[in-house]
Design a protein around this nucleic acid. Structure first.
Lengths: 230, 230
DNA sequence: ACGCCCTTGTGAATGCGCGCACAAAGTGGG
DNA sequence: CCCACTTTGTGCGCGCATTCACAAGGGCGT
């Protein structure tokens, strides 16, 4: 088979690579703000906190966008990664749960700048409905289906208490949402074809506690005193 | 030296297993509330959303705590996992950043019930210092070192804007904190012996966007040139 | 034009994690 | 007491991910 077209990607980018692309993207954007035109894999890897061979292999999955002896063109690489991640188009996001976390998410500025538009913020509590948060008026959860359909929401964010999460998820799914980001501490079950990613604050702390305990077991000393000194 | 304690395993629990133990723990706690005395690997795996063989292998890393033909004793397993994760002791947590996210974290109830105590909430903005959040008075960031030492804080949570994160992290580290949970969208650099875990909302959304785009590519027409079809 | 030096892109080796499938072990009924 | 049934614990093979190390490729000075 002769390869006429550049053939950028073979339909299969490893999941681990996908998870790192946003990190590279952020590093590249900080470089562009500093006016750096090109960057080597070593520098970029250092900024992103990864091994340089890993970075090169990751980028090679997108295509050959570097120049040997020189490095990568920052602007061009930003465009290629953005395109691969689907950030050249806009995605509508709906958040359910206007508690502390939901409001924090709605106010988080990092979304808008990267192709994500918060289309709506829902809550079940009538006392909160109508509140103004981040330029949005909190809507009642019963309007979820309508809004998802009208605003073409494709990503749903669940920031409710655990007990409500599966119900909200089901409503998202039957309204046609196929990607869910879940902050509630429950395991959601969804049909095939729907992606769920979980962010669980309490789990992260427990993992840290495990390692912390192990450190203490090893030294058996007061771990948090005098690790410093020079 | 004979060891009285069962001494479950050597010092090697796989990282992937550690990350799942909190999930099992939560599933077990929901079973205990329902009064279930024992549970099989199949049931528990189903609740936790994992393969049953994987669950058994995970638990086998802690020791042989099941009974063949019966299953696992719920209470006993809860205790063993808690002990392994270090949740039988209390951990003091300090949060820096009393913005929306910091407040959400401070108000999140799931911590206190699992051996985590929020010792303090800091902010750099004098306008916020003194605010009452979740029963805590927001303290000025300059008191961080004192509080970390007095309250024996071992886990630091960073919920600041990106620009402030590395500085806060450095102060945590030199005050003796050896575990950091970072919500700011930056890659933190820390010396050896300090653990950092990252929670990045924007990265999660970007990963979802990637998969969402791929789903759309498959069903709709070819994005650019028909790589599909024979 | 030529050769030196730099950096990319990737073959190959290693290690880790997952899941199947089965032997070992314990329970309960007859 | 024995047998059939249930469920654990794990040996094994497979595939993915990470890292090393190096050949291929391109720029630049002379």
């Amino acid at each position: 088979m002769t390869r006429r077209t550049p053939r950028p990607r073979e339909r299969g980018i490893p999941e681990a690579t996908v998870a790192r692309l946003p990190v590279y993207l952020r590093a590249l954007q900080s470089l562009t703000e500093r006016g750096t035109p090109t960057v080597s894999s070593g520098e970029l890897a250092s900024i992103a906190g990864v091994n340089s061979a890993k970075l090169r292999k990751d980028l090679s999955h997108l295509g050959s966008y570097g120049t040997r002896g020189v490095g990568y063109d920052v602007e061009y690489l930003i465009y290629q990664i953005s395109r691969e991640l689907g950030l050249t188009q806009d995605w509508s996001v709906a958040i359910v749960g206007a508690g502390n976390l939901g409001r924090a998410l709605a106010n988080y500025g990092g979304f808008g700048t990267r192709g994500f538009r918060i289309a709506a913020l829902f809550d079940a509590d009538p006392a909160v409905v109508g509140d103004e948060v981040a330029g949005l008026s909190v809507r009642h959860i019963d309007t979820l289906e309508d809004v998802v359909s009208v605003e073409k929401v494709s990503i749903g964010v669940i920031a409710t208490p655990a007990a409500a999460a599966q119900g909200v998820c089901d409503r998202f799914v039957s309204a046609g949402v196929t990607s869910v980001l879940n902050f509630a501490p429950v395991v959601l079950s969804v049909p095939d074809g729907v992606d769920v990613r979980k962010v669980d604050l309490s789990i992260e702390l427990q993992i840290l506690a495990f390692h912390e305990q192990r450190k203490a077991d090893g030294h058996e000393g007061p771990g948090w005193i005098g690790a410093l000194e020079a």
